[in-house]
Amino acid sequence: MANAFWCLVEDDRKGSPKKVMAEVLGEAARLSGGNVEAVWLTDKVSDDGIKQLGGWGASKVWVLENAAFSPYRGEVWAPVLAELATQQSPKAIVAPVTSKMRELAARLAARLGVGLAADCVGMAMDGDQLVATRPVYAGKLLAKMTWAKTPWIATLRPNVFKPADAQAGKSAAVEKPTVTIPPATMKLVERREETSTGLPELTEAEIVISGGRGMKGPENYVILEDMGKVIGAAVGASRAAVDAGWRPHRFQIGQTGRTISPKLYLGFGVSGAIQHLAGMRTSKVIVAVNKDPDAPIFKIADYGIVADLFEVVPALTDEFKKLLEK
């Protein structure tokens, strides 16, 4: 339908949309009064996946299934989406913040000649204009942004927007348009999977545990991972810990690392430098454990314990275990 809000589907590369799509579809429905469609480029769709998108509120799923869409290449995806958008005139195109979607949304906006608001944490209609709220200057300020014309293109920070309630039985119409698929010049050589810790991905996790220089060495992160296994948390680190070589770069939280917005952030031996706060200050609940009562992290923490982390962590893990075993 013209004027629909399009939601670009991020999937697990195995045929299922990621959970974050419930947030994107939920927000799009709220803004558009329910005129929401999903657009899914993949080499592998599944009926369950389409049902899932319908249950989250998509009235239609545009399915573009082709081997050429795997692996993701912006040079292939952007022209295809632009062609479809030009035919269908959606009012907005929104996607979750992931490494792929951030790049894709930028290329698509350039191709369509429209504005892009990346990494939004708030959206609202002001009359018939969409206004996006996004952190700027490393989260020190918020900027309200408006577009000169439609489609409004935006990416949404995970864990911020209220997810749609899954409605069983609500199904989406499926449309399989024919599109021109441009040739790819980029060739995938290999995909190096990270050795799995069995813990969730940092930017997707609902709970994040972060260890700073106070961890004293790489060998001690195992106590944080043990806690992570109990509460289903990802384990990240400060730049001091990353630069010391204790943790790989991909685990760094902050201005020059990952931006996270979990429901619960637990920082151990992290002082709370402004550049670290930049990456985690939109967390809903912040817990800090530090032996220095004047550590700046206590200024933004909801709960703090002033003590030696090496005493607190095992005791806390035990308490979590007791609670969750009940």
Partner: peptide, 16 residues
């Protein structure tokens, strides 16, 4: 194509 409408300070976090 995209313009700043206005900047805002962060909402204060409830005291911890």
């Amino acid at each position: 194509q995209l313009a700043v409408k206005n900047l805002e300070a962060l909402p204060p976090r409830p005291p911890g």
